[in-house]
């Protein structure tokens, strides 16, 4: 049965992290865009803050994805170490 996989705690953990990564990339960009848009409207500096904050948002999104993948890698390494001992 395919449901057997859910009896393992590591599987739950992995599903969580994997389904997070896509969302993290998009939400970082969206937050950057929104911040830039409203700062522009407030300070009247169109379109510079929008563009720079969009860039910052994209970078932040990628950074979160990298952190997520590092977490997966670290977890796998821990498990491999456990098996080795």
């Amino acid at each position: 049965m395919a449901f057997k996989i859910f009896k393992e705690k590591a599987a739950w953990d992995m599903i969580g992290t994997a389904s997070t990564m896509g969302m993290h990339m998009v939400s970082g960009t969206l937050v950057g865009l929104t911040m830039g848009y409203f700062l522009d409207r407030w300070l009247g500096t169109e379109p510079w803050l929008l563009l720079s904050f969009l860039l910052v948002g994209i970078v932040a999104g990628f950074k979160m994805v990298i952190e997520d993948s590092q977490r997966i890698l670290r977890k796998q390494k821990d498990e491999d170490d456990d098996k080795g001992v």
Binding site: H24, S27, L30, V31, V56, A60, K63, M64
Partner: peptide, 15 residues
Amino acid sequence: LETVSHLARPLSLTL
């Protein structure tokens, strides 16, 4: 960068 990525957390949780 970190401010943006922390603000993105509630957004991604919600959506």
